[in-house]
Design a protein around this nucleic acid. Structure first.
Length: 228
DNA sequence: AACATCGCCAACCGCGGTATG
DNA sequence: CCATACCGCGGTTGGCGATGT
C-alpha cells in the first residue's frame, strides 16, 4: 500500500501544486501559525496549513507547533531531575521518545531525543570504551546503540545507580565521574537562527544559558495582531 | 588570523498506524 | 473489506556557533 504523509514531503501533495517552503521558520510564519491556532485550534494539520495561508506542509506546521510554539513548551536546559527520569524511562522503554516525553511536562520528544543522542550516548560510548569488556567497571556500561533500541537489554543504569549519581536532598547534582554533560550554550544555534530570521531582540538569560527569542514576544505580538 | 573539527539543535524524511469514504 | 488520506513517531541530516589547532 502506498504510504502518504511523510513521503511526498508533507501529507497533502493532493492539490498542493503551490510551492512548499522548507527550512527554518520565519517570525512571520510563526505568528501566522500561532494566530491561526489561537483562533481555530490545532489538529487537522494539512487543512490548517492551507487555511492559514502557510506555504508549509501540515507536517511541518505540526512539528513547529509541538516542538517550539506551544505555550506550554519548556525551553532550556534539561534538569538533573529530568535527566534521571529520561534515563529511567529509556531503560524501561528504549527509544520511545514520545512516550518518555509524556512524563516530562513541557518537554518534546525531539528535545529528549536530541538530549539522549548528544549527551548520554556520548557518555555511553566513552564508558564502553573505557571499561572495555569488563562487566565490573562503573556499573553503568551495559548498553550500546543496538541494545538501546531493544527493550530487554537496554539497561543503562539501574535506578539505584542513577540515584547514587543524583542526590535530590542536596539540590546540587553530583555528576557521574564519566558523565560530561554540558549544560552551557544549548540554544546558541537556535539563537543565531533566530537572529538571522527574526530581526527582533531576543530574551537572553545568561545565568541559565538560555538563549532564545521569547514566547512572550510572540504571544504579545499575536495579541497585538488580534487587537487584544 | 585562518582553518578544521566538534557539538548541538531544528527541521526534514520515511514508515507504520489509524481514520474515513 | 479495500483504497486513500492523514497523523504521529523515530531516525537522520543540515546548518551554525564554539572550540581546538
Amino acid at each position: 500500500m502506498e504510504k502518504r504523509g511523510g513521503g511526498n514531503s508533507g501529507g497533502s501533495g493532493s492539490s498542493g501544486e503551490a510551492e512548499v517552503r522548507k527550512g527554518p521558520w520565519t517570525m512571520e510564519e510563526d505568528l501566522i501559525l500561532i494566530n491561526y491556532i489561537a483562533n481555530h485550534g490545532d489538529g487537522v494539520w494539512n487543512s490548517l496549513a492551507k487555511s492559514a495561508g502557510l506555504k508549509r506542509t501540515g507536517k511541518s506546521c505540526r512539528l513547529r507547533w509541538l516542538n517550539y510554539l506551544r505555550p506550554d513548551v519548556r525551553r532550556g536546559n534539561i534538569t538533573p531531575e529530568e535527566q534521571l527520569i529520561i534515563m529511567e524511562l529509556h531503560a524501561k522503554w528504549g527509544n520511545r521518545w514520545s512516550k518518555i516525553a509524556k512524563h516530562l511536562p513541557g518537554r518534546t520528544d525531539n528535545e529528549i531525543k536530541n538530549f539522549w543522542r548528544t549527551r548520554i550516548q556520548k557518555y555511553i560510548k566513552q564508558d564502553v570504551t573505557t571499561t572495555t569488556t569488563s562487566s565490573v567497571g562503573s556499573g553503568c556500561s551495559e548498553i550500546n546503540d543496538q541494545a538501546a533500541s531493544t527493550s530487554s537489554h537496554n539497561v543503562f543504569c539501574t535506578q539505584d545507580q542513577a540515584m547514587e549519581t543524583y542526590s535530590p536532598t542536596t539540590t546540587s547534582y553530583q555528576q557521574h565521574p564519566n558523565m560530561d554533560f554540558n549544560y552551557g550554550n544549548q540554544y546558541s544555534a537556535a539563537a543565531t537562527t533566530a537572529t538571522a530570521d527574526y530581526p527582533i531582540p531576543m530574551n537572553v538569560d545568561d545565568q541559565s544559558g538560555e538563549n532564545y527569542w521569547g514566547m512572550d514576544d510572540i504571544w504579545s505580538s499575536m495579541h497585538l495582531l488580534n487587537g487584544n
